[in-house]
Amino acid sequence: MHEAVIANVLTAHADYLISTKTWDEDQMKRLPARQVELAPLLQIAERLNGALKPVTPAPAFKARLRQELLAAAARRAEKRGIEKQVPFLRRKKVVIGVAAVIGSVLSVAGVVAALLWRQRSMTRAPHAT
């Protein structure tokens, strides 16, 4: 129970340190028996807040990494585009193949028809003379 109360006080204090939230110092007064334990912990939290500040990367590193990532993302997007195009290209090849087969069949049929027509006209020729 007491542990939970202390954890709550420490959390409220940390929230006060990192944000604009207010710190109710009376919280300490409401826990007179734990003041000896709490005071050094609050002091450590304040020291942590002073020491642990955000660190910024070098601008040149940030810019270089951004460029690398954008190039990698663009290559990924391009690869995806090609992968999407593949089924379409495959369909296109099938259509061309079918058309070629139909064209070949029609050509052969035309030649056969021409030969038959010629043969027929040759067999009719003696009757005419």
Partner: peptide, 24 residues
């Protein structure tokens, strides 16, 4: 997931935070 520019925005938003975390 598909737009490099959108990934660039996420990068700009979080690079400093991730860097700070890793640095410490």
């Amino acid at each position: 997931k598909t737009d490099p520019e959108a990934f660039g925005i996420l990068y700009e938003r979080y690079v400093n935070k991730v860097y700070s975390y890793i640095y410490y």
